[in-house]
């Protein structure tokens, strides 16, 4: 009788990367056709990112990022690059929340999103939340380059810990440049290794936070009006419903910032802000 071979080592994903982690960058390019339809001459998924074209062809082109494996894990270096050329329109979503998980080595994971939007072009980048699982360590950057007449709607939601667990370490920086000038530069640092984040000045016990950024040339003429969201609008803020504010940046843009006890209530606040910003 032969000995049974040892069971294969358990891999959550294949092909198994080295301990250095996975390197993958998904790329897409949106181009305006003469018929007003946006085409996607480049639509290259990579590693954990599968790119699915959804909906009918038209303006905008719609793409959904589908996770083909669990990522990012510690040590991974992942990227998404999207270019929307002059006059084109791209609507980008993700199929599910992204969960940052611990890796085998304790190395941080890196996740870099770079988008470029040309003259008269529009990008809607509306991913599902990023969840920082206990023990994970993720460094995220979002870099946006906008032409002067570009239109952008960008949502970013972070959830600190899965249900009932501690948060991982999550550092995220977003830099938005418009016509070469920096419109927004914000960094968040939460969890182990960050100081002061779990403070009454920063999150006040909330575990979901997010932003909705709308950049539109028409805000040059008329800035969005300040609007308090959720509990912030009441006389005495009610902590349980979360709170936020929609306000103009120093430039043709509006930013909603919100904190909430969970992802569902956070989304409600950002949806409310989105309706306000669209109504002008």
């Amino acid at each position: 009788m032969t000995l049974a071979p040892p069971p294969p080592a358990h891999h959550e994903r294949a092909p198994a990367p080295s301990t250095a982690g996975l390197r993958a960058t998904a790329r897409m390019l949106a181009r305006a056709g003469g018929d007003g339809v946006t085409r996607l001459p480049v639509l290259d998924g990579d590693g954990p990112f599968a790119l699915r074209r959804v909906g009918a062809h038209g303006r905008p082109a719609r793409v959904c990022v589908v996770s083909a494996m669990s990522a990012p894990l510690g040590g991974d270096r992942l990227g998404i690059e999207a270019t929307v050329e002059a006059g084109a329109a791209l609507h980008l979503t993700t199929a599910a929340a992204t969960v940052a998980l611990p890796g085998r080595t304790g190395e941080p994971a890196h996740y870099d999103v770079r988008v470029t939007v040309g003259e008269g072009a529009r990008l809607d980048w509306l991913p599902e939340p990023l969840i920082s699982a206990a023990g994970s360590d993720l460094r995220m950057t979002t870099t946006v380059e906008l032409a002067a007449t570009a239109h952008l709607v960008l949502r970013e939601e972070q959830v600190l810990g899965r249900s009932g667990e501690e948060t991982g370490a999550l550092r995220s920086r977003i830099v938005v440049r418009r016509a070469g000038r920096t419109l927004l530069d914000q960094e968040t640092a939460y969890g182990p290794g960050a100081t002061g984040w779990d403070s009454t000045a920063v999150l006040g016990g909330h575990r979901a936070l997010g932003q909705l950024l709308v950049v539109a040339p028409e805000f040059e003429e008329r800035a969005v009006e300040v609007r308090l969201l959720g509990g912030a609008a009441g006389e005495r803020p009610a902590a349980h419903e979360g709170q936020g504010v929609l306000a103009p940046l120093a430039g043709p843009a509006a930013l909603a910032t919100a904190v909430a006890p969970d992802a569902l209530r956070l989304r409600r606040l950002l949806d409310e802000a989105g309706r306000s910003a669209a109504a002008g």
């Binding site: 960094e187 968040t188 403070s199 009454t200 308090l228 912030a232 709170q243 904190v259």
Partner: peptide, 22 residues
């Protein structure tokens, strides 16, 4: 360049400052 400068944000300070101003 000035990107080297810290950009640490405090969401509640931003939200409540705008609320307080009203």
């Amino acid at each position: 360049g000035t990107d080297a400068l810290p950009a640490a944000s405090a969401p509640l300070l931003d939200i409540t400052a705008q609320q307080h101003a009203a």
